[in-house]
Design a binder for these strands. Structure first.
Length: 686
DNA sequence: TTAGCCTTAAACAGTA
DNA sequence: GTACTGTTTAAGGCTA
């Protein structure tokens, strides 16, 4: 019984999550860029993007000017830093105010989102590394306790400036490319190196370094390990001395111009914290998201929980007065504060860019799905996702309130629901209802391929991501094995080849080999859909597609619950959780899809009825040509390979599937033929 | 609450 | 003897 049901999803095991793998990606000819989180701009640039671009350019110009101004700045300084040891990367603090663990982040966020997050962290790290270098090289870069006046040496500043310039070049380059639609927002080579080399703990360590904590060997190694010279965006491999970086803080929130209110009426750990959502700052622990009262109420956005929220600080301040004193002393107008502000600016910019892109993507998705094309951008309105469960809660927390989120589970799908059950009839309902991904607790994106074979599209689109990031793929072993086998030219693989495929495609599977290899073997033996065939080269494993399809759940056409939820689902929170999850799956694929996929024609309405499966399929069609996967288009999946002795009665005539026993392998179909046989038809057969 | 699904771990046997 | 391959069982967590 259970044997017939193949697994669908690989559950994320917290103990196995280590952030980013340091393993280098293996070249499999993929070279795709679909892993980018924003592969959907495609030549279109929104006004928001333009605005950001302008801001970026203006910022760079200002920096250049300021850097020149500061070139003469020489600052010998050997100060001591008094920093709290426990710190959280500011980017993490921003992105996960609820202190979502990396594991949860992996589960919650789609690969593009994860990648975007990593990118933001990398951008931040680049600057942090700057500090680390300067600090470790001269041991003079520290901050003061009582009378802090950080002075950077000219060499340090030169190094820092160089890195900043590199960043600027990178960003500008990316922006230009994005504007031209040539490239999605994607980490540069250096960033990817960082991504591979860094884990959250490293980030914390880096921040400690940035904050002035006496240099640590680990951080130094991390910083030195970064292959900044490989940056493809610029050729700067060395760090020539340059003008010192110095950015005035006049306009920066260093607290000087801030008129702190009395703290008496504002317990530092209540209201003050509420600003965390909007003022990304450090926080040791999870803090409840909150309102913006604090600023209006007189508390300081840099003050909360009885401690300074200045990035990297966390100095304890009993009251507001002490905090103000601390602020003026520790975070006065100096290079360090300037640099930290710059870091924060970068973080904000990255978030804004990402936000704009995600918003644009959402718009395109909704347009594609025939959702109120005339209606204003939905993300301009705050989405009340509070009742949608923790998953949605997470998304709300991760993004500024009232701002659009990346297509979360509920955001995208909501509109089709409004259109009534007719659009979402039968299959879609049932399929979605079978999505088990529930937002609560450890988010598991289960059954992803069960409904739309997103493994194909997602892997195709995010192959680079999975290849480099130590993120567990949200698919079951069974689906991955199947994918690997079907991806092979002969649609048969030896066990070792399956192993190799896993390690080649996923950084995650380059470790804990004993565990997952055992699981692979276990799945091969357990599931009927995997057929062992004695071959010339020994035993090879093939896929019995019929068996694989068999294990799919039956349709639940017209599920009363779902229909009810759909009809009443004008609010995100009212959506059926399963449906949301399924839609989230859909969003995953859409995330990296071009923003303007061909709207479904009238003839394709029956595709719509299969729900997001078809959306994914559509996306796959769009992306199949440019797929990062060199081997096959996701549509090839549905091709059963030779297998199984007994021809299955199911779907026989629907699919030109050869299930003859003993056939070594089915001849690869021409690509166009394969396209006709992609997952969609397969899905519809159910 | 239950059954099914999925993962992980482990034991065991056969083979190179 | 070791490593690999393949099968099987069990346990635990999650979800419908």
């Amino acid at each position: 019984m259970m044997v017939e049901s193949a697994s669908e999803t690989i559950r994320t095991t917290p103990s196995n999550q280590n952030g980013v793998s340091s393993l280098s990606s293996q070249s499999d000819g993929g070279g795709g860029r679909e892993g980018g989180s924003n592969g959907d701009t495609n030549g279109e640039i929104s006004p928001v993007d333009l605005l950001h671009l302008q801001q970026q350019q203006a910022l760079q110009a200002a920096r250049q000017f300021l850097l020149q101004q500061a070139s003469g700045l020489n600052s010998p300084g050997s100060n001591e830093v008094k920093q709290s040891p426990v710190q959280v990367p500011v980017s993490m603090a921003m992105m996960s105010p609820q202190m979502i663990t990396p594991q949860q982040m992996q589960q919650i966020l789609s690969p593009p989102q994860l990648q975007a997050l990593l990118q933001q962290q990398q951008a931040l790290m680049l600057q942090q590394v700057t500090y680390t270098h300067t600090h470790t090289h001269t041991h003079t870069y520290t901050v003061v306790g009582p009378s802090p006046r950080l002075q950077l040496g000219s060499k340090q500043l030169a190094f820092q400036q160089q890195l900043i310039q590199m960043q600027q070049l990178q960003q500008q380059h990316i922006l230009n490319l994005q504007r031209q639609g040539l490239v999605p927002l994607q980490p540069t080579a250096a960033m990817q190196s960082l991504q591979q080399a860094m884990c959250p703990s490293d980030l914390q360590q880096l921040w400690k370094e940035v904050s002035g904590v006496p240099s640590s060997e680990e951080a130094l190694k991390q910083a030195e390990g970064l292959d900044l010279s490989t940056n493809s965006s610029n050729s700067t491999s060395a760090f020539p001395k340059a003008a010192s970086a110095h950015i005035p803080l006049h306009s920066l929130p260093n607290g000087q111009s801030h008129t702190p209110k009395r703290d008496s009426g504002y317990p530092s750990f209540t209201k003050a914290d509420s600003g965390d959502d909007h003022v990304p700052l450090y926080s040791k622990g999870s803090q409840p998201p909150s309102s913006h009262h604090e600023e209006h109420a007189g508390s300081h956005p840099l003050y909360g929980h009885g401690e300074c929220k200045w990035p990297g600080c966390e100095a304890l301040c009993e009251d507001m007065g002490q905090f103000i004193k601390h602020l003026n002393n520790e975070h006065a107008l100096d290079d360090r504060s300037t640099a930290q502000c710059r870091v924060q600016m970068q973080v904000v910019q990255q978030l804004e860019i990402q936000l704009a892109k995600e918003s644009e993507r959402l718009q395109a998705m909704m347009t594609h799905l025939h959702m109120r094309p005339s209606e204003p951008k939905p993300f301009n309105q705050p989405l009340n996702l509070a009742s949608s469960g923790s998953l949605l809660k997470r998304d709300s927390d991760a993004y500024p309130e009232g701002l659009p989120h990346p297509p979360t589970s509920a955001a995208t799908p909501i509109t089709p629901l409004r259109q009534g059950p007719s659009v979402i009839s039968s299959s879609s309902l049932h399929t979605h209802s079978h999505s088990h991904t529930h937002a609560v607790g450890p988010i598991r994106r289960r059954n992803s391929d069960k409904y739309c074979t997103p493994i194909a599209s997602e892997l195709a689109q995010n192959c680079e991501f999975y290849k480099n990031a130590d993120v567990r793929p949200p698919f079951t072993y069974a689906s991955l094995i199947r994918h690997a086998i079907l991806e092979s030219p002969d649609r048969q693989l030896t066990l070792n080849e399956i192993y190799n495929w896993f390690t080649r495609k996923f950084a995650y599977f380059r470790r804990n080999t004993a565990t997952w290899k055992n699981a692979v073997r276990h799945n091969l033996s357990l599931h009927k859909c995997f057929v062992r065939v004695e071959n010339v080269k020994g035993a090879v494993w093939t896929v019995d597609e019929v068996e694989y399809q068999k294990r799919r759940p039956p349709k639940m056409t017209g599920s009363p619950t779902l229909v009810k939820n759909m009809i009443s689902g004008l609010g995100f929170g009212s959506l059926n959780a399963s449906y949301q999850a399924a839609l989230a799956e859909s969003s995953l694929s859409l995330l990296n899809s071009p923003p303007l996929v061909t709207p479904p024609s009238a003839a394709s309405l029956n595709m719509l009825h299969v729900g997001h499966d078809d959306v994914s399929s559509t996306v796959e069609q769009v992306n199949s040509n440019g797929s990062c996967s060199p081997t096959l288009s996701p549509q090839q999946y549905s091709h059963p390979v030779h297998v199984k002795e007994e021809p299955t009665e199911v779907e026989e005539d629907s699919r030109p599937v050869s299930l003859l026993a003993g056939v070594t392998h089915s001849l690869p179909l021409p690509s166009d033929e394969r396209d006709l046989e992609e997952d969609l038809p397969t899905e519809e057969l159910e």
